[in-house]
Design a protein around this nucleic acid. Structure first.
Lengths: 155, 155
DNA sequence: TGACACTCGGTGTGATAACACCTATATTCA
DNA sequence: TGAATATAGGTGTTATCACACCGAGTGTCA
């Protein structure tokens, strides 16, 4: 049986409300899931944020994306997109090029090396997700997704 | 109607699996919920991590907690507990005292000022949770909590 | 009792994130 | 047209995180 959050965090008192309990459960679960992914990505020299960027850019091929559009599509808030992309450019994962039509814009695209890295990560990541969430049936996963979608409406 | 994650992140392609979709939904929701809380706490000069520490310490009164126990109870991983507590001590929110029996241990306790701050935050935080999660019925919240608890078993 | 391993908190250092501000380009509209 | 405004990306600086390592204190057991 899974430990409840109360047991997990060794709390004495119950939660003050169901809403608070749900809130804390979402944060705790996210943290645990992210930590596992970070562990998997670390040997590849990639953070989960960079992994997220690569997948977004792969989905935007062959057009590429400008910085702000990319930032808005991130899973988590990332105010300093410029230097995150600087580092990824240095690592050879992305390229940037200033547009001719609107010279304010800089399009970022995933490189061949970036795509190869994603390809290499495909199987282990799927495997991780299976390990993490394999206990939930398709119906339960669907239900979880729907409840979280509803939760995001308010925040 | 709430936007699905696919719409929210303006993705073209569907997710490769339900497990991946659930994974991404948890992370996205956590990020949004945390951002709102950070916005609420910022005027009080508190990060959500510090807020978490204060609540743990309040629940541990009057004994206090040692650094490692505190770290293990955090919602999110926090490797550098020492300097987080340094900052909170400087802010007058916690005190630390080395134990006499086992001189390796340093007990951390919440101060009166820390408790007062938590007290002040009580109502706005409850209000925030209502705003964030008020769309979900008690039954839905219970269901969400159970599904997340099950999800954490694998990670 | 004394060498050893273990646990505790702390520290040095580099990487990353966060915030405010800046410059260049484009757009709007009198 | 040209001043005002908006938008794009970039930069300077500080705070925070993260990792590896350290010394002090404790327990163990020959």
């Amino acid at each position: 049986m899974s430990p409840t959050l109360k047991e997990d965090l060794r709390q004495r008192k119950a939660f003050t409300s169901l809403q608070q309990e749900a809130f804390l459960n979402v944060l705790r679960t996210s943290s645990r899931l992210t930590d596992s992914l970070e562990d998997l990505l670390r040997p590849y020299g990639l953070s989960s944020t960079q992994f997220n960027v690569l997948r977004i850019l792969r989905g935007s091929e062959p057009d590429g994306l400008c910085r702000n559009e990319l930032r808005d599509r991130m899973l988590t808030r990332m105010p300093d997109m410029t230097r995150l992309l600087d580092r990824m450019e240095d690592a050879g994962l992305v390229t940037r090029s200033r547009e001719q039509e609107d010279r304010r814009m800089v399009l970022t695209r995933i490189t061949v090396a970036g795509q190869a890295l994603l390809q290499e990560l495909e199987r282990p990541v799927v495997e991780l997700h299976r390990k993490q969430l394999g206990r939930l049936s398709d119906e339960q996963l669907r239900s979880l997704i729907d409840l979280l979608t509803l939760a995001r409406e308010g925040a």
